[in-house]
Amino acid sequence: MIGVRKIGRPMDLKERSYLVEVARGLAISMAHFARNVVKQDEMPTIQYPEEKRVLPERFRGRHRLTQREDGTPRCVACFCCQTACPADCISIEATEREDGYEKVPARFDLNILRCVFCGLCVEACPCDAIRMDTGKYELSGDDRGSLIYDLNTLLKD
């Protein structure tokens, strides 16, 4: 059987009548209300689609794939990012370059619905080919397919 320990919280008449505390509470909420009516511009709310938050420098947004000078992807399809990814959101298909010198990705699909934005792929990349410095966070789409970004989309940013 569970014992119940009763803790006495003696209240004096002022507290028991509630009135004083209620009046104080009302004064506080009225102060907030009045201030926000008079100074609507100073409200901390950011009117989002029109105003946007200034992002911190190291904000980790959506990924991009970096390019070499000639516009080809830096990615060598080494699968390091795919292996490192805890959410299993990257899937790469490798192919050989035409000159046979090194591998390149034939497909590079990044399922942003699964991504947890941990940044492990960026750390794993030996070629600095994937970065999360686009600052894009408005990731939405009308269907799931549009949220699986392919090579070209990721290269564009």
Partner: peptide, 10 residues
């Protein structure tokens, strides 16, 4: 609206 203003929201 009043609840919002009391809680410092718009």
């Amino acid at each position: 609206k009043v609840s919002a203003f009391i809680q410092d929201r718009t």
